[in-house]
Design a protein around this nucleic acid. Sequence first.
DNA 1: GATGAATGAGTCTTCATTCAT
DNA 2: CATGAATGAAGACTCATTCAT
Lengths: 204, 204, 204, 204
Amino acid sequence: MGKKVEENKRQKRTSLLMQSYNLFMSKGIPNVSIAEIAEKAGVGKGTFYSYFRDKEDLIDQLIARKAEGLLVHALEDLKSHEAMGMPLSVEDKLIIITDDLITELNKDPKLVKFLNRNLHLGFYKKAFERTDFIGNFDIAAMYKELISSENYEWRNPELMLYTIVEFVSSTVHSIIIEKEPVDLETYKPYLFSCIRSIIQVFKA
Amino acid sequence: MGKKVEENKRQKRTSLLMQSYNLFMSKGIPNVSIAEIAEKAGVGKGTFYSYFRDKEDLIDQLIARKAEGLLVHALEDLKSHEAMGMPLSVEDKLIIITDDLITELNKDPKLVKFLNRNLHLGFYKKAFERTDFIGNFDIAAMYKELISSENYEWRNPELMLYTIVEFVSSTVHSIIIEKEPVDLETYKPYLFSCIRSIIQVFKA
Amino acid sequence: MGKKVEENKRQKRTSLLMQSYNLFMSKGIPNVSIAEIAEKAGVGKGTFYSYFRDKEDLIDQLIARKAEGLLVHALEDLKSHEAMGMPLSVEDKLIIITDDLITELNKDPKLVKFLNRNLHLGFYKKAFERTDFIGNFDIAAMYKELISSENYEWRNPELMLYTIVEFVSSTVHSIIIEKEPVDLETYKPYLFSCIRSIIQVFKA
Amino acid sequence: MGKKVEENKRQKRTSLLMQSYNLFMSKGIPNVSIAEIAEKAGVGKGTFYSYFRDKEDLIDQLIARKAEGLLVHALEDLKSHEAMGMPLSVEDKLIIITDDLITELNKDPKLVKFLNRNLHLGFYKKAFERTDFIGNFDIAAMYKELISSENYEWRNPELMLYTIVEFVSSTVHSIIIEKEPVDLETYKPYLFSCIRSIIQVFKA
DNA sequence: GATGAATGAGTCTTCATTCAT
DNA sequence: CATGAATGAAGACTCATTCAT
């Protein structure tokens, strides 16, 4: 396959991914037809099916792509904090990551809408099982490492992660999308305090 | 309109509501057609439209009905606790209500699946705006009364309710449905501790 | 259901059946779409599916309908011969039926084309299993009666019927449709002689 | 064109022919796409079109190839019988050929299924008109020679061939494929007796 | 010459909604 | 007032065929 062809294919895929995302956001996933996506992306209807098995497959790839982007960003943020040399507790680290994630999401509320339907812990399992995924992160391993950086005995660290992820994602949803009941900046202090409290609950 | 006719109409509505709920549960909401609902309910397809504007409307009424049932049960539970004469703090009361709610839901996981897609705070607004609703509860007033039963100064009581509702509903979802990561009884101690901690956060 | 509605439905069904048959004949079965059939029949595309499960089902009903018509005609022909009082051997009877069938088919070559793809003995089993069939004939019983009208010992009467049916149907096909290698009237003497010979083979 | 190139082309054509045949047999002709055939044959989709005009054309060539093989085998069988020195009547010869053909076909029922949809006398005309065919047999001439080996006056030898070919092919079809109503060995005596009878009919 | 990416017409099928009875 | 026959828009998906590389 020639370079030009390969580049062309990447462009088509990207166009399909981007345009479908825009359509999903503006009209709602079930109200977007494949024909519509193909048209917006400037490709034939049939072309869609040479890139994605079906709408489901497209959505999966979209989620994986978007989620990965967020995660990379958050981890880099954590790294840069660590680079500053201050000692960071587990709480601190989790809050840094959370802060970065929700701050990024707040810049793109449509992304929240899109991800939140799918963004529970279970999602990670699924999304990161994809093999054709760039920069496959092992979330489980990363979390384990994070947790063990301090010498606490955690009562049930997996359950703690579950609780925090669910807590943050559900709580932040309407706050970002509708700024209701309050806006994100107003909510952050409460949110972070709650996270710290929740972590205390899980300390032995 | 004669009594008999009125009774007949109520039966039809009830049948439509019940049968659609069963179908939604067993096949998934998008896979149930109006024709199917009408058939199961033993009425004509056209009749459906004299009771509900469309599928959306049906779902809304279904949610309201189910949610109301849960709420009534929880409030009666609270009343019976209060009747026992022990002094109950706001925390205690909220946990009693929560406990009742999730215990009831745990008996009917399909209901959780159905409600959770829609059960965010915004739901209450929507559901309880319906006028053709039996036993319209004024959630806001009830909550206000609950909160003011103690003499704390709450920092932001509405936000607290929001936080707790989101926390409990999102957290409990997969625990009830998939018993993952742990089952409900295992989770309850953590859950209630977290709720108490969250409430602390909102105390001035 | 009102009489008018019922009559209307019969008309629709008939129209669907007739128009699809015409289309099948002129364009070939695989080249006729359901949309086309519906249009010709003057009904909506969806209406088709309330009368037939799919194209296959339509074809089955078409075959049954057409085959039944032929059979009725042939049996009446036989009856009128019998009414004339001449003693008829089994050979005579089979040839009277055959003659009537192929003479009728020769008037409507398109019908041959349509039936022959499906008209093997196995067809009878299938077609006459239909319960919503008018005048359900029991071919097997009729044949048994026919055979036993004389006191021969047949070596394998079922195999004989199979042989004759296959022989006639395959042989007559291109003769009726393309008048090749000869036309039907020219072929009949040979055909009937062959049938008589075949019958002799099966006599004990 | 170099020898190597020519050889390469023959291989591609053969691969296309063989793989498509396998696919047709296992999935049914209408359910096999050109893409699938090309893939199985290990060539590009476009390449298919430089060997065959379309699926129809492919099928025609497939039939011709398979039929030719059968014919060659049958004629060799006849030759070896003749080599044995016994005097063979026209009946004997036709039955030897028939016997060989159906015995071969019985070894490969899938081939029957494939050929029978197309194997009427008309087929020979069509198949053997192809010029790019190896070992073009002149069926007509061969038959003429066979017939005139005895000094009968045949009433209509072409019609006799037609009758026998149709008789055998239609009759033997379900017997080979489904062993219904009886298996081939059981049927052969009847079949051959019938053929002899049919031949008698065509003797002046 | 071979390739396979791209195409989009065409297919079946479902279903919400209407309206004559 | 209830009914369900009729509708046709809309959707997912297939595939023969073309043509730039």
